[in-house]
Design a protein around this nucleic acid. Structure first.
Lengths: 303, 303
DNA sequence: GATACCCATGAAGCAGTGCTTCACGCTCAA
DNA sequence: TTGAGCGTGAAGCACTGCTTCATGGGTATC
C-alpha cells in the first residue's frame, strides 16, 4: 500500500512547485521531504518529479499520483470533520434506555430539553424492564440506561458505571374517600388493618411492602396483584385496598386516589444513571449524561 | 491527520466483525490490531468499536469512519493501478526529440513500430536543432532525444546519459552527369579540383569538409552555402558543385544526383540516444529507448 | 456443570523508520 | 564573485509499530 503521508508530501510539493516550500508548509525540513519523495518514487517504480534548477515539476506519473493524493486528503479531511461533528454534538445518535415509571416522570422534560439543546442529534428512547435494560447497555444498543434499586439489593454489574440520580421515596396511595385521604402524611403503623394492592410477578415494590410492614410489626393482607401502577391506582380508587408506590410512579395520580408521604422509615427507591465503563465515551452520551443529571437534580428539588 | 493504515485496520475489523479475523486477513497478530485500534480511538476522541463477547461491532463513529476508510482504500488502489498502467505501458506519454536528418531516415520505422507495439501510449515527437534538444532534455520536456556528434567534438553534457545508436558515414553527392557519377566509391584526393556546396551557418558538416580536404592535402573551393541537404542536393544536381553529407541525410536522394561512399578516412557522424541520468526512468522512456536501439541496429545492418 | 476454545487485551522488547542536524554542490541573481 | 535558494546525502536519535508471551472473560460443547 502506498504511504499516504508520502502522497500528501507529493501533493504539497506539486502544489508549491518546490520541496523546500512544501517542507516549510508542512513543518518538516527540506531533507526529510527529499528523502520521503525519493522513497515514494521507489515505491511507485518510476520517477515522480523532474528535478530542476529552481524547484521541481511533476512527471506524468507524479501528476497522476498527486491527483489521487488530493482526493485521498479530501476524504481524510471529511472523515475528521465527521468525527468533529460527532464530537461537537452537531451530529450523532444517542440511545437511552428507561423503565416505565421514570419514563413518564422525567422523560418529557429530558426529551424536550435535549431537542432544544442538541437539535442535530437523534434521540432513541427505549422503555423496558430492568434486566433487559442491563442487556441493552451491555451489548451497546443503548449508551445510557436509567436503572433503579433499593438499599437491600443494590445494582452491581461488572463494567457498568452508576451515577445516582434521584431518591424516589415510597408513598401511600389511598382512595379519595379513604379515612386517611385528607392527610398528607402517615406512617406504616397506621396501616396494619388495611387491605393491600401489590404489583404482580414478584415486583420489588412487593418487597418494600413486606419489609415496611414487618418493621411496623404486622403482616399485610394482599387483596389484589396489579400489573402496573395505573391498574393499582384503579383498584385503590374503588376501595379494594391501599398501595405503596414510588412517588415518581404517581406524579399524575388517578383523580379518585390520594397520595400520602410515609417518611424515611419506608425504603426509598434510588434511580441511577448507568453506562458502560469505557475509557472513551461517545460525546453524545456524555451530553445526555449531563442533561439527565441536571434534570434529575431539578426534579428532586422541585418536588 | 488520521493514520490511514489504522483506518484500513478499522475497515477490515468492521467488515469481518472481529479483530482476530482482521488480523489474520492482514497478516498481523490480534494484539497488534487491538493496539492500533485503541490508538485510533484516541485519535478519533471517541470509541469506534463496541467490544462484545464474540468479536466487536462498530459504534456510530466507527461506522462513519470505516465508510471513509473504504473510500480512501479504493482511491489508493486506483492510484496503484494507475502506476501499474504507466509501468505496464498501457498508458502514458513519451516525448521524443529528434533532428531533421535522422527524423526522416529513422523515424517512420520507429513511429510505426511504436504504434503497433504500444497502442495505448501517446507519442510526441519534436524535431529541432541540437542545442534546443539538449535544453528540452534537461528541462524534461522530452524524455529521450537523438543527438549527433563527430569525433573531434564529442557530446558531453552533465547528467545526460548517451548511447551510440548509429555510425553515419559521410558520403559524397555529385550530379547525375558528373564524371564520377557512375562510381560507387571515391576518395577525397580525387576531389581536389571540385567546387563545393556546404551547409550555411557554420554547420558541422563544413568542418567535416575542412578536415577531410586538409587531410587529403588541398583546400576546398566553396561555391554555395545551402540551408539544408535538400537545397544542397538541388545545387549539386544542376552542377554547381559537389557536396558532403551524412548518409542518413540522403536516404532518398534527389533523382538528379548520385551518392558515393568515401571510406573511413572521412569522419563519420555518430548518432546518439540521450536521456537524463535518473535513478529511475519512466517506463515509457525505457520502452522507447529499447525500440530506438533495435531500429538503429537494423538500419545499420540493412544499409 | 466442567472444560476447552475463541477473542480481546496488556507488558516487554526489538527492529525499522522517519525525522533532525550538519554539510555539500548546484544555479541564479545581484 | 558572492550570497541566497534549492535539492541531496550521511549520521544519529527517538518513536512507533510489530511480535511474543501471558491473562481473563465469555461461549460452546460434551
Amino acid at each position: 500500500m502506498l504511504d499516504v503521508r508520502r502522497l500528501a508530501l507529493l501533493a504539497a510539493v506539486v502544489d508549491t512547485g518546490s520541496m523546500t516550500a512544501a517542507a516549510e508548509q508542512l513543518g518538516y525540513t527540506a531533507s526529510a521531504v527529499s528523502q520521503q519523495l525519493r522513497r515514494l518514487e521507489v515505491e511507485a517504480g518510476q520517477p515522480l518529479l523532474h528535478r530542476q534548477a529552481r524547484g521541481v515539476r511533476p512527471t506524468e506519473a507524479g501528476a497522476v499520483l498527486a491527483g489521487h493524493a488530493r482526493q485521498i486528503l479530501r476524504r481524510l479531511s471529511a472523515a475528521e470533520a465527521d468525527l468533529a461533528e460527532l464530537a461537537g454534538l452537531r451530529r450523532g445518535t444517542i440511545a437511552l434506555g428507561v423503565f416505565p415509571t421514570v419514563a413518564s416522570a422525567l422523560l418529557p422534560e429530558v426529551v424536550s430539553r435535549f431537542r432544544r439543546q442538541y437539535p442535530d442529534l437523534r434521540l432513541d428512547v427505549r422503555s423496558t424492564r430492568f434486566d433487559e435494560l442491563v442487556e441493552l447497555l451491555e451489548n451497546g444498543t443503548v449508551g445510557i440506561a436509567l436503572l433503579w434499586d433499593y438499599a437491600w439489593n443494590r445494582v452491581d454489574v461488572e463494567d457498568i458505571s452508576l451515577t445516582p440520580l434521584l431518591d424516589d421515596p415510597t408513598v401511600l396511595i389511598v382512595a379519595a374517600d379513604h379515612r386517611l385521604a385528607r392527610k398528607r402524611f402517615t406512617t406504616m403503623s397506621e396501616l396494619a388493618d388495611e387491605d393491600w394492592i401489590v404489583r404482580a410477578h414478584d415486583h420489588p415494590v412487593a418487597e418494600v411492602l413486606e419489609r415496611s410492614c414487618r418493621a411496623a410489626g404486622f403482616t399485610p393482607k394482599i387483596a389484589f396483584e396489579a400489573n402496573d401502577y395505573q391498574e393499582a391506582q384503579a383498584m385503590v380508587s374503588v376501595g379494594l385496598g391501599v398501595a405503596l408506590a414510588p412517588r415518581t410512579a404517581v406524579r399524575n395520580p388517578n383523580p379518585d386516589v390520594r397520595v400520602l408521604a410515609l417518611g424515611t422509615d419506608v425504603p426509598a427507591r434510588r434511580v441511577l444513571l448507568a453506562h458502560r465503563q469505557d475509557r472513551l465515551r461517545a460525546p453524545a452520551e456524555l451530553a445526555m449524561h449531563q442533561l439527565l443529571v441536571d434534570v434529575a437534580r431539578e426534579y428532586q428539588t422541585r418536588v
